[in-house]
Design a protein around this nucleic acid. Structure first.
Length: 708
DNA sequence: CGCAAGTACCTTTTT
DNA sequence: GGTACTTGCG
C-alpha cells in the first residue's frame, strides 16, 4: 500500500519531490492541504525522516492545527516533535531559547497592534510631534512596513520632514520597546533573522536540525519571512513553498508577491509543480471566478479545470438597502435549510467588518444562529486586555505599555498628571516606569525637579507594594488561580462588574480564565501569554457548531463552504474605494473577490445594495466593475421587490448588555441572547434576584432608556 | 484627581 | 453610528 495512492499525478509529484527546492503552484480547491499533509507523511513514513527534523510553516494557527490532524490520521500516530506553526509562533519559540545572546529578556512580552499603537503615541508625545499632522496609525504602519523589510531606522530614506519624523519616531519607539522588554509582531521575524545573520553558530544549529522546510501560503509572506526561510534552508536546500499568486491578498501588510519570483531566482534548480485541477467548486463557479481573475494584468495565466458538474448558475441579487440585502441572504438561507443544507455549510462574506452589522441583526431577527468571526475580537476587548496587562506585569514589570494601562485601573489616585511625570522621569533616567516607581521610595525624592505630593506618593507606593505582592504570589500559583487573586486584590473585579455592561465584561474575563484553565497545569505565565498573544479569530472557528459563518473575505482564505454569499459587490466596497487610485491595490481587490468566490462548492450568491449607509450617510454605489467580466449566461439576476417584507419578529429586540425591567424580577442586564425559531431566548441577570432565562415573546420584559 | 459632556475622526483588510 | 480623545467643572 502506498501512502500516496489517492493522489492525482501532479499532486503525487508534488508529494514525492522531497529533495531540493520545490515550488508548488496550487490553485484554489486543488487539494493543497492534502498534498502538504501527504508530503510530510511520506517524508516521515517512507523517507524515514524524524519528525523533529521537519519544519512546516502555516499562515494561521488554525491551518497548523488542521494539518497536524490530517497528518496524525495519515500516519496513524502522532507526528510528535514536528515543528509546525505560524512564522510568528515559531520565531517566538526560537527567540525564547536563543534570545539571550542578542540581549533579549527571557520573559519578553509580545506587543500586539493595540500595544504598538500605544507605544507609537507615547513616542510621538515624547518627541513633541503633533499627532494631528502625523497620525499614530500612519506612523505605525510605516514602522511596520520598514520592519517587514528588515529596515532599521537608519535605513529609511530621508527626503524630507515627514521621512525625518518617521525615522525619529521609529528610533524612539525601539527604545521604548527595548526598555519594556517587549517585542512587536514584526520584531519576532526581524530579530530572528538578525539572530541568524549575526550568530553563525545559532544559525548552523537550526540549519542542521531542520532537514526539511515547508512553507504554506507563500504568496502572503513578506521579505523578513522569506529571508528567514532562505537562511534556514541555505544548507540543506530542501525547501518547499506552496502558494498561489492569484490569492495574494496581504500586500497591505507588506506581503511581497515577488517572493515567488525571487524563489525561482534564488533557487534556479527549483522544480515547479502546478496543481490545476479543482475538486471543490462547480464548473460554473470556477468559470466565473476565473473570468474575474483573468482580467488582472500583472499575472501569469493559469488554467484551472474541474470534473465537477456545471451546477447552478451564480445568482446576482439586487437589494434596495443594506438591510434588505441581509434579509435576502437570510431568506435564501432559510430556503436552503429546507432543502437540507446545514447552516454550518453556509457562509456570508464581506469586504469590511462594518458590513457584518446588518447581517448580524437580520440573523438575530429571523432566528438564524450565526458565528461571527472577528468583528470585535475577543482578545481585543478592553476588559480582556486589562487583565492580560496585569498578568504581563507580573511576568515582566518593565512592560511600560501594560503598566500605564492598569496603573489607574480601577482609579487609585494616579491620574494623568502623575502618569506624565512618571513617563518624563523614565525618559530622563532611561529607565522603565517600574524602576522609577522604586525610586519614589528613596529619600532623594524631595529633591526631584517636580516632587510628588504626599498623597500621590502614597498611592504610588501602595500600587508598587500590591504589584510586588502579586508577583510573589505568581511564583506559586497556576494561571487561573493567579487571575482570581489578581482580580480580587487589585479591585478590578468589583470595578468592572459595577459598569453598565459589567456582567458581560465579567463573563469575558471568566472566559479568559477558562482558556487558561484549559492549558495543562504547570504551564507558566509566559507560555500562556505567548499563546494568547498569537491567536487569531479564525483559529477558533468551530466547524461543528451549527450556525451560519459571517466572515471577512480576508479571513475566509483557506476555508470552504457549500454555499457562499458575497455581499456588497459594489464599486466602493469591492473594490474598496481606497484602492481606486492604486492599480496594484485594485488588482489585489480583484484577487480578494476571486478568493471569496472560490470558497464555494455548490452555490454562489453575489449581492449588492443600491443604497448603503456609510458613516451615517447614505451612499449609492454602482455595481462592482468586476461583474463586468462575468458572462451573462453564467448569472441569474433578480431584483427584489422594493417594499421590504414586514419583520415577522418581536418588536423589542434585545442585545447583550441591554438594561431591562421585568414585571416580577425588576431591573436587570441582558447577559446573552439566543435566537430560537421565531423568537429569542434571553438570559438576564437581575439585580438581587439572580440570572434567569426568559423567552422574549412571553416574558413581560421591556428595555430601559434609549426609547427604541 | 475624577467624571461628565462634548468633539473630531472615522472605516480596509490582520499575524 | 461609534469610539477615542479633549475640555471643563466639582
Amino acid at each position: 500500500m502506498d501512502i500516496l495512492d489517492s493522489l492525482n499525478p501532479a499532486q503525487r509529484q508534488a508529494a514525492e519531490t522531497t529533495s531540493g527546492p520545490l515550488l508548488i503552484l496550487a490553485g484554489p480547491g486543488s487539494g493543497k492541504t492534502r498534498v502538504i499533509a501527504h508530503r510530510i507523511a511520506y517524508l516521515i513514513g517512507v523517507g524515514g525522516v524524524y519528525p523533529r527534523r521537519i519544519m512546516a510553516v502555516t499562515f494561521t494557527n488554525r491551518a497548523a492545527g488542521e494539518l497536524r490532524q490530517r497528518l496524525d490520521g495519515l500516519l496513524g500516530r502522532s507526528a510528535g516533535e514536528l515543528t509546525l506553526g505560524t512564522f510568528h509562533a515559531i520565531c517566538a519559540r526560537i527567540l525564547r531559547v536563543e534570545g539571550e545572546v542578542i540581549g533579549l529578556d527571557r520573559n519578553f512580552v509580545i506587543y500586539d497592534d493595540d500595544d504598538q499603537l500605544s507605544a507609537v503615541k507615547q513616542s510621538l508625545a515624547e518627541l513633541g510631534v503633533d499627532s494631528h499632522r502625523f497620525s499614530p496609525r500612519g506612523v505605525l504602519s510605516a514602522i511596520s512596513a520598514a520592519k517587514s523589510q528588515l529596515l532599521a531606522p537608519a535605513d529609511l530614506p530621508s527626503r524630507g520632514y515627514a521621512d525625518e519624523v518617521a525615522r525619529r519616531v521609529y528610533e524612539r519607539y525601539e527604545v521604548l520597546l527595548a526598555r519594556s522588554h517587549a517585542l512587536d509582531f514584526d520584531d519576532l521575524l526581524l530579530r530572528t533573522v538578525k539572530l541568524f545573520q549575526g550568530q553563525p553558530p545559532v544559525l548552523a544549529k537550526y540549519q542542521t536540525r531542520y532537514l526539511h522546510l515547508l512553507i504554506d501560503e507563500f504568496q502572503d509572506t513578506n521579505i523578513a519571512q522569506y529571508q528567514f526561510a532562505k537562511l534556514l534552508a541555505a544548507k540543506g536546500r530542501n525547501i518547499c513553498v506552496v502558494g498561489d499568486p492569484d490569492q495574494s491578498i496581504y500586500g497591505w501588510r507588506s506581503a511581497d508577491i515577488r517572493n515567488i519570483l525571487s524563489f525561482e531566482h534564488d533557487f534556479p534548480d527549483a522544480r515547479v509543480v502546478v496543481l490545476g485541477q479543482n475538486y471543490r467548486s462547480t464548473k460554473t463557479i470556477l468559470e466565473v471566478a476565473s473570468r474575474i481573475i483573468a482580467a488582472n494584468r500583472q499575472r501569469k495565466p493559469k488554467e484551472l479545470w474541474t470534473e465537477n458538474p456545471a451546477g447552478a448558475p451564480v445568482s446576482l441579487l439586487e437589494a434596495e438597502s443594506e438591510e434588505e440585502e441581509a434579509r435576502l441572504v437570510v431568506a435564501e438561507i432559510e430556503r436552503l435549510q429546507k432543502e437540507g443544507v446545514p447552516l454550518r455549510e453556509c457562509a456570508v462574506m464581506y469586504r469590511t467588518n462594518a458590513q457584518s452589522r446588518a447581517l448580524e441583526e437580520a440573523c438575530l431577527r429571523f432566528g438564524i444562529p450565526y458565528k461571527l468571526i472577528g468583528a470585535v475580537r475577543f482578545y481585543q476587548r478592553r476588559e480582556v486586555k486589562d487583565v492580560i496587562a496585569y498578568l504581563r506585569l507580573l511576568q515582566n514589570p518593565s512592560d511600560t505599555v501594560s503598566l500605564m494601562r492598569v496603573i489607574n485601573l480601577p482609579p487609585r489616585g494616579i491620574g494623568n498628571r502623575t502618569q506624565e511625570e512618571l513617563a518624563a522621569r523614565a525618559q530622563a533616567q532611561s529607565a522603565s516606569i517600574y524602576d522609577v516607581l522604586h525610586k519614589v521610595r528613596e529619600p532623594g525624592e524631595q529633591a526631584a525637579p517636580s516632587p510628588l505630593s504626599l498623597r500621590v506618593t502614597r498611592a504610588l507606593l501602595e500600587f508598587l507594594g500590591m504589584l510586588e505582592e502579586l508577583r510573589q504570589a505568581a511564583q506559586e500559583k497556576e494561571v487561573p488561580e493567579m487571575m482570581d487573586t489578581l482580580l480580587e486584590r487589585t479591585g478590578y473585579e468589583r470595578f468592572i462588574r459595577a459598569e453598565e455592561d459589567g456582567e458581560e465584561r465579567w463573563d469575558n474575563i471568566q472566559e479568559l480564565r477558562s482558556v487558561a484553565a484549559g492549558y495543562p497545569p504547570g504551564q507558566g505565565l509566559t507560555d500562556f501569554l505567548e499563546k494568547v498573544g498569537l491567536v487569531s479569530d479564525v483559529d477558533n472557528l468551530d466547524g461543528v457548531a451549527e450556525g451560519v459563518t459571517l466572515i471577512t473575505l480576508h479571513q475566509a482564505k483557506g476555508l470552504e463552504f457549500d454555499v457562499v454569499f458575497m455581499v456588497g459587490v459594489e464599486d466602493g466596497v469591492l473594490p474598496h474605494f481606497r484602492s481606486f487610485p492604486n492599480p496594484d491595490q485594485m488588482e489585489e481587490e480583484r484577487r480578494l473577490c476571486y478568493v471569496g468566490m472560490t470558497r464555494a462548492r455548490h452555490r454562489l450568491y453575489l449581492l449588492r445594495a443600491y443604497h448603503r449607509n456609510l458613516a451615517g450617510m447614505s451612499v449609492a454605489n454602482p455595481p462592482s466593475r468586476f461583474l463586468g467580466d462575468v458572462p451573462r449566461r453564467l448569472l441569474t439576476t433578480s431584483t427584489s421587490a422594493t417594499e421590504a417584507p414586514p419583520p415577522p419578529l418581536p418588536l423589542v429586540q434585545l442585545r447583550e448588555g441591554d438594561a431591562v425591567t421585568h414585571k416580577v424580577f425588576g431591573q436587570g442586564v441582558v447577559v446573552s441572547t439566543l435566537p430560537i425559531r421565531g423568537d429569542q431566548q434571553v438570559t438576564v441577570a437581575f439585580k438581587g434576584v439572580g440570572v434567569k432565562k426568559l423567552l422574549l415573546s412571553l416574558a413581560p420584559l421591556s428595555r430601559l432608556d434609549e426609547g427604541g
